[in-house]
């Protein structure tokens, strides 16, 4: 769909409010047809970054390119933005509200009407079309907001905390929809605090903290490049082996198993061999990758 498969590129983008630097020299690329996780602690500059991408704010310096063009008002129609703080007119009927948002994204009234009907059907909200928005539950409003974000079939979707307020059933439904949209080769930027969700959905991630980029890359690369290797172990005996500082850097106990952090240069195979030799009964031996959660904590901790 786009040049070099890059949907969105930020080039040395900075934004200051008075003396406060919200985003400092941020560069990143979001590739087409992938789910890109923008993660970071509160106040890291995520919302400001997103607002610059959707052209609500203009960067002080740097460039934002969407589909190979300088970001402009015209390109706004190809973006769908679901802000973290939801916004719907309380007294408007669901159908009218969606049609209005659709038309503001350049759809004709008729196009908007057919699409909103299809989406309401898909998200099981058809019978609510003529109700006023404030009669809906929070989760339903959340889904209405989501329809308003996707109904104009944007090439780039920006979803801030899309799962908040959804029960597990609806969260699962939403996840299916997102994967469908991804299969249609749409690009999704996914911003969240929930690392487990990011881990489950994202192809690529970018971690920002204190206005700066801390970490970037595909989820796989990030995890494997992350220097921490560990083994989940359940065994009877072999305590002496675990005390060998050449092999083991540390042991954390988790209920019925322990997490063994390998020493630098040590090999998991070597550990297993030594355990078996020592006569320990091994019932679980699994090499574990660091979770995104751990990476987040460590990286944010480091840069604090």
């Amino acid at each position: 769909m786009s040049e070099n498969g890059v949907t969105l590129a930020l080039r040395s983008v900075s934004k200051k409010f008075d003396e406060f630097v919200a985003v400092d020299d941020l560069s990143l690329e979001v590739r087409a047809g992938r789910i890109f996780g923008l993660i970071g602690p509160n106040g890291a500059g995520k919302t400001t970054t997103i607002r610059m991408i959707v052209n609500i704010l203009a960067p002080d310096t740097g460039r934002i390119e969407l589909f190979g063009e300088q970001m402009s008002e015209r390109l706004q129609d190809r973006i769908g933005y679901l802000p973290e703080e939801r916004g719907l007119y309380k007294k408007m009927r669901v159908g009218e509200q969606l049609r209005y948002f659709g038309e503001l994204k350049g759809l004709t009234a008729r196009e908007a009407e057919t699409r909103l009907d299809r989406w309401l059907e898909r998200l099981k909200l058809s019978e609510w079309k003529t109700h006023k928005t404030d009669e809906l539950s929070k989760g339903m409003q959340q889904k209405i907001q989501f329809i308003a974000t996707v109904m104009h079939e944007p090439d780039l979707l920006i979803l801030d905390e899309v799962f908040s307020g959804l029960d597990p059933v609806n969260a699962e439904l939403m996840k299916d929809v997102l994967l469908e949209l991804k299969a249609e080769h749409r690009t999704i930027i996914f911003s969240t605090h929930m690392m487990s969700q990011a881990e489950e959905l994202c192809d690529d991630i970018c971690l920002i903290n204190r206005s700066r980029k801390v970490l970037e890359g595909s989820l796989r690369e990030v995890k494997s490049s992350f220097g921490r290797r560990a083994v989940a172990l359940r065994a009877e005996g072999g305590d002496a082996v675990l005390k060998d500082a050449r092999l083991v850097a540390g042991v954390k106990s988790y209920g019925d198993y322990v997490e063994v952090v390998l020493a630098e240069e040590a090999d998991a195979q070597e550990l297993l061999r030594r355990l078996v030799e020592s006569g320990a009964r091994v019932t679980r031996f699994e090499q574990v990758e660091p979770s995104l959660h751990d990476i987040f904590l460590q990286k944010v901790g480091e840069s604090a």
Partner: peptide, 12 residues
Amino acid sequence: TRVSEVLFSSVK
């Protein structure tokens, strides 16, 4: 209602 943020991503 925070509708303005959605609106500003669509119109000036």
